[in-house]
Design a protein around this nucleic acid. Structure first.
Lengths: 148, 148
DNA sequence: AATATCTAGTTGCAGTTGCAACTAGATAAA
DNA sequence: TTTATCTAGTTGCAACTGCAACTAGATATT
C-alpha cells in the first residue's frame, strides 16, 4: 500500500465515484420510466424480505441500507402509507418498532427486480468478465471494511 | 462477457454501490466537521479552475460534474451568493452565461483540497496497491464508457 | 423573411435529505 | 430507588433534488 497520493489514485477515485453515479442514475431512470418507486424503496423492502423472521427493527434497516435513522423513519412512513410495510410495537423494547413486509410489498419487490435485474446486466455485468467482477468485488470489499 | 446474471455479479454490484456511498459519506462528514461546504461545490469550482480560459458555460459544468441543468443553475446561485463565482453574459450566445471563478473561490478550493486529499488517502488509496488502483480505474472506466 | 424547432438557462412545486432538538423507554451508576 | 446516561425513533427547519413548465435566444425549414 502506498502512502503518497498519486495522480493515478485520484483518477481511479474519480472514476469509481462517477461509475457508481452513472449506474444508479441509469437504473433510477429505468425505474421511473416503468413508473416504479426509487431504488431506496427496493433496498429496504429487500432487507426485510430477506429475514427469516420476516421482520426487522428500524435501526437494523438503517445499518443495512446505510440510511440515517431519521431517513429510515420517514422512508418507512411512505412505505407504510403505500401499504408496503407495517410497523408493530416491539415487545422486548417498547421504544422500538418491528417492521414487516406486506403481501403487496413483496409483489412490488418482484416487479422492481425485473427492471433492476435488467439494468444490472445491461449497465454492469455485461461489460465485465467473471474474473473482473470478482476483482471488483474484492477491491470494493476492502474499501468498505476499512473505516480509515 | 457473460450474459447471465450471477450471484457474484449481484454481490459485486452491491459492493460497488456501497463502497462509493461510504467513501462519499466519510469525506462529506470530514468536510462538514471542518466547516466546509459539500463536495459538489468543490467539483464545480475545480472544473472551472481547470480551464485555461478560466471560464465555463453552465451546460459544460453540468456535463462534467454530472448535474442536471436546473441543479447547476441553482448551485451556481449559491456559489455566486457566496462570492465564489461570477456569471457573465456570453457574447457568442446571449442565452448563456460564462461562469468564472473568483479569488475567494480559488482560496476555498485550496482549503477544501486539504481535507479532501486526506480523505482520499485515508479511505481509498491507503488500502490499495498501485496495481489495484490501476485495475479499479480500468474496470470503472469500462462501466462509464458503456451506456448500455 | 416567416415559421417551426431546438437549446441554454430559470423557476414553482413536491419530494427527499441532513442537522438539531425532541420524546420515551432502557441501561448504568449513586 | 433515584438520578444520570444512553439508545430508538420522530419531527421542524433549511437545504437540495427531480420534474414539468416556462422565457429567451439560436438554428433549421419553407
Amino acid at each position: 500500500m502506498n502512502a503518497k497520493l498519486t495522480q493515478a489514485a485520484i483518477e481511479s477515485w474519480a472514476r469509481l465515484i462517477r461509475a457508481q453515479q452513472l449506474l444508479i442514475e441509469r437504473v433510477e431512470s429505468d425505474l421511473t420510466a416503468a413508473e416504479l418507486p426509487p431504488l431506496a424503496w427496493y433496498d429496504v423492502l429487500l432487507e426485510i424480505n430477506r429475514e427469516d423472521s420476516g421482520q426487522l427493527r428500524q435501526f437494523e434497516i438503517g445499518d443495512k441500507v446505510l440510511l440515517s435513522k431519521y431517513n429510515v423513519s420517514r422512508l418507512l412512513d411512505r412505505l407504510e402509507n403505500e401499504g408496503l410495510v407495517e410497523r408493530q410495537r416491539c415487545e422486548q423494547d417498547r421504544r422500538g418498532a418491528n417492521v414487516i413486509i406486506t403481501k403487496s410489498g413483496k409483489a412490488l419487490l418482484k416487479k422492481m427486480w425485473v427492471v433492476y435485474e435488467r439494468g444490472l446486466e445491461q449497465y454492469f455485468s455485461r461489460h465485465l468478465s467473471k474474473q473482473e467482477i470478482e476483482q471488483l468485488a474484492v477491491l470494493t470489499a476492502r474499501l468498505i471494511e476499512n473505516p480509515d
